[in-house]
Amino acid sequence: MNKSLFADISLLFVALVWGSTFVLVQNALSFLEPFSFNGVRFFLAGLLLFGWLCLFQRHQFTYINKRLIFSGMFIGFWLFLGYAFQTLGLLYTTSSKAGFITGLSVVIVPFLSYILLKQRPNILAIVGVFIATIGLYLLTMTDSASLNVGDAFVFICAAGFALHIIFIGKFSKQFPTLLLTAIQILTVAFLSSIFAFLFEDWEDAFRTDVLLTGEVIVALVITSIFATAVAFFIQTNFQKYTKPTRVALIFATEPVFAAATGYFWAGDRLSGSAIFGCLLILFGMIFAELPKKNMLFQRKNAM
């Protein structure tokens, strides 16, 4: 199995983990507010990663310098921006619209990738993105409410997630994976904690009757280990073997896994258009992976 294919499979596993934990996070947020939850979640994940570094990868600390620290914090900032504006947008718009607009990162990535990294997506990737975007619309847009300020906030969130994908692709080739992942995770924890202090009842994050609630414990353990520490380590490690546009397409399957999890775990029901949307997302991802012989749009400066 070549590195590119293995990277795609690993990133698809990340989308599966994120999608399948959506219900858990929703349940936990009824006890702990979003920034507080993310502050604890990312802090625990950061401690886990640094603990692993200290025990098994101590040699990576020799690579620490200002450039590595800045790169990790820079990546972490865009990740935090995505979470922050998604949370802010949900105060003013519906979850279905937020899901669709967040998924538009699949459209934003190819354009920013070309501008920032000088990578031209091939024609199959462009068609795949178009198909997946239609699928996202059918899966998530269950209402026809007009646009509002919340939608603008969520669009900034989509741009933040898109830039996170792009800059991981840029910096993951230059620095040790585990160390770079730990720094970006702790950056999100730090910024989330600041926003929790400013805008939420941050004291809840220190109340044992809240933290020891079954829903919160389960959500924190699973999301901090699998959906944060493991997932972002996989993304940082394997994205160097693939292209940002392909990563965005793979991550577009997250709402598909979320819908499937909601169906089996929470009793949610999908409409016919939503099911068709799921199929279009999967088809768009597969279409972009078809052989690209004789394509006109290839990566600039390709050999």
Rank of each mutant, 00 (worst) to 15 (best):
L11N: 03
L11T: 00
L11S: 04
L11A: 08
L11H: 08
L11E: 07
L12S: 12
L12C: 12
L12V: 06
L12W: 04
L12K: 02
F13P: 01
F13E: 02
F13M: 09
F13S: 10
F13G: 08
V14D: 00
A15I: 07
A15F: 01
A15Q: 01
A15S: 15
A15P: 03
L16P: 02
L16I: 12
L16N: 06
L16S: 09
L16R: 03
L16G: 05
V17Y: 03
V17Q: 06
V17A: 08
V17N: 05
W18K: 02
W18N: 00
W18C: 00
W18Y: 14
G19Y: 07
G19V: 03
G19T: 06
S20F: 09
S20P: 05
T21S: 10
T21H: 06
F22S: 13
F22W: 09
F22N: 02
V23C: 04
V23Y: 12
V23G: 07
V23D: 10
L24A: 13
L24P: 01
L24K: 08
L24C: 10
V25G: 05
V25K: 08
V25H: 06
V25C: 05
Q26D: 15
Q26G: 14
Q26E: 14
Q26T: 12
N27I: 06
A28S: 13
A28F: 05
A28R: 02
L29M: 13
L29E: 13
L29A: 10
S30L: 12
S30Q: 14
S30C: 07
S30D: 15
F31H: 15
F31W: 12
F31Y: 15
L32D: 06
L32M: 05
L32I: 08
L32P: 00
E33T: 14
E33M: 08
P34E: 11
P34T: 12
P34C: 11
F35P: 03
F35A: 09
F35D: 09
S36M: 02
S36F: 01
F37P: 01
F37R: 03
F37E: 01
F37V: 12
N38D: 13
N38Y: 14
N38P: 07
G39Y: 00
G39D: 03
G39L: 01
V40W: 00
V40A: 05
V40Y: 00
V40Q: 02
R41V: 10
R41A: 11
R41N: 14
R41G: 08
R41L: 12
F42M: 11
F42Y: 13
F42L: 08
F42E: 00
F42V: 04
F42N: 05
F43N: 02
F43W: 06
F43E: 01
L44W: 08
L44M: 14
L44H: 10
L44Y: 10
L44N: 10
L44F: 15
A45D: 15
A45I: 12
A45M: 12
A45E: 14
A45R: 13
G46D: 10
G46Y: 06
L47W: 01
L47T: 04
L48F: 14
L49Y: 01
L49G: 04
L49F: 02
L49N: 04
F50H: 03
G51M: 06
G51D: 05
G51I: 05
G51F: 06
G51N: 04
G51S: 13
W52L: 15
L53E: 07
L55W: 11
